[in-house]
């Protein structure tokens, strides 16, 4: 069934969009990532103009994250206090990020910068996660006592402004989570994504948060970041397509619920391996596109 999208000005099969939304939603609920790094390329593949894909993707991820947050919140797996600190950092970071983005636009080559940032961050994050989680899995297989990760009394404990994060069972300074939030905000403004794929590993490995709480808390922060992004795009670039978002949402919210339910049945290591593989796959795809000779050297855009 073909649907004409009012802002994108293209006709797209509604079932393709429903399926796409469902897939991204499933991953979102499962891993706690917004799925923006998958959504934008996939929408463009279907024929949606890039600008509309980015802006509408943000809107869709906002809803999927909200659905996911509710599901995680019911089982007490959202650390609102930690989420708040991350969000404060995120807002600060995104303001800086927008400035950098404008600078890059003036210099040209935004596209290339975005691709390179993707490859760098997805590669590093995915690689580290895969190594760590595979190691954990092998240790578990060998029968070595699954060592309870020792709470490292690292830098996060020495800094001032300590705060008790009850849901995460942590008593650390607010400075590291604020900085992580700021980094994610910065990157999400440049890369046009929620930033879950960076935040989830950062919370696990740098803050030492329990994996169970990480997913819900990450979604909580993504929900706000993408909400603000949607409003900014709607008022400044006029590229939010509400009809497209609605179709993606129907699939997305359902997928997020299924994903959240399914995620509870998986082991933490399996979740991390899954996310790591997905991140690496996208990384390789983008890297390949950068290096391989494209079939079409030319591209069109509306002239300013």
């Amino acid at each position: 069934m073909l649907i004409y999208l009012p802002i994108a000005e293209v006709s797209v099969n509604a079932f393709v969009l429903l399926g796409l939304g469902g897939l991204i939603g499933l991953l979102s609920g499962l891993f706690g990532v917004g799925g923006g790094f998958l959504m934008t390329p996939l929408l463009m593949l279907v024929g949606i103009p890039p600008a509309v894909a980015v802006a509408t993707g943000a809107n869709q991820i906002c809803a999927a994250s909200f659905s996911g947050v509710l599901a995680h919140w019911r089982r007490g797996a959202v650390d609102f206090r930690m989420g708040g600190v991350l969000l404060a950092g995120g807002v600060a970071g995104s303001f800086v990020g927008v400035e950098i983005f404008e600078l890059l636009t003036a210099l040209g080559q935004v596209e290339l910068m975005v691709s390179l940032t993707y490859v760098l961050f997805l590669g590093v994050v995915g690689g580290l996660m895969l190594i760590e989680s595979l190691g954990a899995m092998i240790r578990a297989r060998r029968g070595t006592a699954p060592k309870r990760r020792q709470r490292r009394r690292g830098w996060a404990h020495k800094l001032p402004l300590k705060m008790r994060f009850r849901a995460s069972n942590l008593y650390i300074s607010v400075i590291p989570p604020f900085l992580i939030g700021a980094l994610v905000g910065l990157l999400s403004a440049i890369m046009g994504v929620g930033g879950g794929f960076i935040m989830v590993p950062a919370m696990i490995y740098m803050l030492g948060m329990p994996t169970a709480v990480v997913v819900g808390t990450s979604l909580f922060q993504i929900m706000f970041v993408t909400g603000v992004t949607t409003l900014l795009h709607a008022t400044q670039t006029f590229t939010v397509d509400i009809a497209l978002a609605l179709l993606l949402l129907v699939g997305g919210v359902t997928g997020a619920q299924v994903g959240a339910r399914f995620g509870m049945k998986l082991k933490a290591e399996q979740l991390r391996i899954g996310l790591a593989l997905m991140v690496l796959a996208v990384c390789l795809k983008i890297a390949f596109d950068l290096v391989a000779t494209p079939a079409e050297l030319y591209s069109l855009a509306a002239a300013p």
Binding site: I7, C62, A64, S67, A234, T235, L246, L249
Partner: peptide, 29 residues
């Protein structure tokens, strides 16, 4: 209607998009 709203009242349009998004998320939940 949607196209006109997105151009003439972008803030309202953006808020509408957000409300729809949150309502859908809550509804599915």
């Amino acid at each position: 209607w949607l196209f006109a709203l997105s151009r003439e009242a972008p803030l309202q349009y953006g808020l509408l998009a957000l409300i729809v998004a949150l309502a859908m998320g809550w509804g599915a939940s």
